[in-house]
Amino acid sequence: MDRQKIIKDLVVKTNSKIVLFVMDGLGDLPKNGKTPLQAANTPNMDSLAKESDLGQSVPVLPGITPGSGPGHLSLFGYDPLKYQIGRGILEALGLGIDVGEKDVVARGNFATIKDGIIVDRRAGRPSSEESKKVVDILSEKIKKVDDVEINFYPGKEHRFVVKFTGEGLFDEVSDADPQREGSPMEWAKATNPDSEKMANIVNKLIKQIGEVLKDQPKMNFALLRGFSKHPIIPSFEEVYKLKAAAIATYPMYKGLSKLVGMEVLEAGQTLEDEVQSLKDNWEKYDFFYFHVKKTDSYGEDGNFEEKVKVIESVDEILKEVLSLNPDVLIITGDHSTPSLMKSHSWHPVPVLLHSKYVRKGLSVSFDEYECARGSLGTISGSDIMTLALANAEKLEKYGA
């Protein structure tokens, strides 16, 4: 029987409140004997760990490195192997872009290319304002490729979205992105014969972008990935009977939330803004997804010290989250992003679950090693949602 069907049949509505607090890319590896979680001064998380169940989660399968989309779908209780959703639709929905039946959308990264080699996949992380200027140039210069209409939309920092509109477009296309610096360009390929047209259009577009931007100092090329049409997925409220809200500052995570039917709240730009949004809306919802991006950004940049600082900033604002007395609080990540590797990885993700029903007293701090020894053990990422519901007394007994 379908897992979500079982859960849907067991869920009951209660007044209890759940906060899923996601520090993107939280898991890491040690540098000089300590991970960023261990190196950070986190008195609030460590105190909470003593009163919580700790464990670690595997977002997809052991050894599989997840993208942010699969990592989050797993956290939301959706099987990421069943619901394979391209990054493009998540970014597009997060930016409020309409995606129709004839559309395919893709997430774009401005990049720096030299002598055919990708030397910087993020073009020096330009500001959103700088990036928008270059998107405006592309919008003016490129409107069609063959019979396909092209539209560009600015995103955050180096990111943007491309929407392809036309007949016979399918999304079974590999990423046009080598996924690493110091490598030659990896061009799009059709993974299904029906998508040959789409792959050809993508590669023609990228070459045109390179020609238009060839004189830009850093944003002189583009990488496209996550080609996707609008998927069909059961809503969060339908499955869990939860009135759910999302607090996130980056488009992709807003898109993920919209995709599963959460209401996206105004979250500002800072951690303090996000906490204020949580406080302002506390009485209106019974589930809150709270997203912190910079732990992942600094991991991808290989900046161990700044990742430590972000964790310490989160620990500070955690006091205000706890002051609201959520019935269930989960602190975790969607995947690991070790600063040593400068990329997502397959390493299990730390999990802290706090409620009045936990087996507390088994842990002394919140970090990867304490979580590996914790009472929850190593679980699937998609099990976190059922544990949250159970601790919030929102699941009836299964069977006689």
Rank of each mutant, 00 (worst) to 15 (best):
V349H: 01
G381P: 10
H344D: 12
S345Y: 09
W346G: 12
T378R: 11
P326H: 03
K309M: 02
K309W: 04
S355V: 06
H347P: 10
R359K: 12
T378E: 07
I311Y: 01
D367H: 00
P348Y: 15
K309A: 11
Y369M: 10
D367W: 00
V308N: 06
E370D: 01
M341S: 15
S380F: 03
W346P: 13
Y357Q: 07
E300V: 07
R359W: 08
G333Y: 12
I311V: 09
D327E: 15
I379D: 02
E368G: 03
V321R: 08
P338K: 13
T332R: 08
E300Y: 04
C371V: 00
L353Q: 06
E368D: 02
F366K: 00
F366Q: 00
E316Y: 11
E305Q: 06
T332I: 12
H347Q: 14
S375C: 09
S313I: 10
R359A: 11
R359C: 12
S365C: 04
G377L: 07
L362T: 10
L376R: 01
C371T: 03
S380L: 08
W346R: 15
I379K: 05
E320Q: 12
E305R: 05
E368K: 10
V314Q: 02
N325Q: 15
L340I: 15
R373W: 02
V351M: 08
D334F: 14
I330Q: 13
M341P: 14
G361Q: 01
M341A: 15
T332Y: 06
K319E: 11
G377H: 05
E306I: 02
H354G: 11
S365Q: 09
G361W: 07
L352R: 05
V349E: 03
L353R: 08
H335Y: 15
G302K: 07
G302L: 06
E370M: 06
V364P: 01
N325V: 13
I379P: 03
L322M: 05
S363N: 14
R373P: 00
G302H: 03
G333A: 14
L329T: 10
G374R: 00
V349C: 02
D327C: 15
A372D: 02
E312H: 01
I311Q: 05
S375R: 11
T378W: 05
S345G: 04
E300N: 12
S323M: 13
V310F: 00
K360A: 10
H344N: 12
I379T: 00
K360P: 02
L322Q: 01
K342T: 14
K307D: 08
D334V: 15
N325W: 09
S339K: 12
S380D: 09
V351N: 06
D315L: 08
